[in-house]
Amino acid sequence: MGPMIGGGFLGGLRAGWRRLVRRLARAALLDAEHEARIARDRLRDAIEAIPEGVVFLDAEGRYILWNQRYAEIYHRSADLFRPGLPLVETLREGVRRGDYPDAVGREEEWLADRAAKLVQATGERHEQQVADGRWLLIEDRRTREGGIIGLRVDITQMKRQAQALEQALAHAEAANRAKAEFLADMSHELRTPLNGVLGLAQALEATALDARQNELVADIRASAAQLDRLVTGLLDYRDAELAAEGRARDVQSATHAAAPELRILAADDNPTNRKVIELMLAAAGVHVVTVEDGAAAVEAWRAADFDAILMDLRMPVMDGLSAIRAIRAEEREAARPRTPILVLSANTSAADRRASAEAGADGHLGKPLKVEEVIAAVQAAVAPPPEAPI
């Protein structure tokens, strides 16, 4: 009986121990599940507190957890979200529904590119537009366990602000261009008659005048010079060559220094300016042929030989730059000798001078014209190049 009693006791003890272990295991499991629920709830509370869309995926790119903001951002696809479903599958259905405008017409290519970015999950950011016009910033990054945490930020307002800024900059640039064009027009309209006044005064000063007449001419030049200074200041030009000259300039010496027997073609749409050029150069013994637009200048150049051409820029029918280009092109095609061309214009900005040079001009003189400068420029243009040293 003793051994049986002992065996029964031990058997009961083992059974009781097993029950205790099972109860402890169940309790531990319940505790673990409870702790897991608490941790999961805390994680959910944490990601729900984040104002941007957040999604957790496993290592295979399948949904684990996402916050409400993520569902709101992708509200057209939110009905597809469920744990264990690959995110790529929701993207595929979204493409079928037309949720992603960039995918239209290139659906498989778009899906392959998006899937590749998801696999890499390097944290590189890219933008995505959805069907309702919103723009999203997407960032996917691998966790230490191999899963993926994704961030979705609605940047629609930022994009609109950037577009508004871009439009504002474009308007500002257009305003600056309009301002520059206005100043160029003003320069031309003011300097053209001013050139006539100064040019005629210089031509008159070069003739035989009595003392009273010389005083009147000097007063005219002084008043014109003052107006020139005002125009220069208004247009913010710093070209010292346009500053007023002294009343004691010896015009006679400048005109007599010009080389005679030159034949010059001058194009200017303003009759007074054409008269000024004729008087300036005729006093120096230069024969001048004048025309009133660029097309007439090209035709005159084709019909006769000229030692140099003086070309205004703003003219009807054909402007000066177009006329210069046409002449240079025909010279190259017909192998004609190169005729020196000097621009005489009220437009004297750096851009205007650069445009003249690019068209093929050999010089650019600003109006109001000064007789000695015109003659010196013509002399320099027609002078033969210096011989190379032996």
Rank of each mutant, 00 (worst) to 15 (best):
G7K: 14
A15G: 11
G16N: 15
L30F: 10
L43S: 04
P51A: 01
Y70M: 07
G84K: 08
E89T: 04
T90A: 05
R96Y: 11
D99C: 11
V104A: 08
G105P: 07
W110N: 00
R114Q: 11
V119G: 05
Q120P: 07
E127G: 07
V130N: 00
R134E: 00
L136Q: 03
T143Y: 03
E145R: 06
G147V: 01
G147H: 04
I155W: 03
Q157E: 14
R160G: 03
A162W: 09
Q163F: 07
E166H: 10
L169C: 02
A170L: 11
A170Q: 11
E173I: 06
A175F: 08
D185Y: 12
R191S: 13
G196L: 11
L200K: 05
A201V: 00
E205C: 05
L209T: 03
A211G: 00
L216F: 04
L235D: 03
Y237R: 08
A243F: 10
A243Y: 09
A243S: 13
A244R: 02
A259P: 10
I264H: 02
L265V: 14
D268N: 03
R274S: 08
V276I: 02
V276A: 02
G285W: 03
E292T: 09
G294A: 15
A303V: 09
I309P: 00
M318H: 03
L321Y: 13
S322M: 08
I327F: 05
A329E: 14
T339H: 07
T339D: 04
L342F: 01
D352G: 01
R353K: 04
R353F: 02
A357C: 08
A359C: 13
A361P: 11
I375W: 06
V378R: 09
P386L: 15
E387R: 14
A388P: 15
P389N: 06
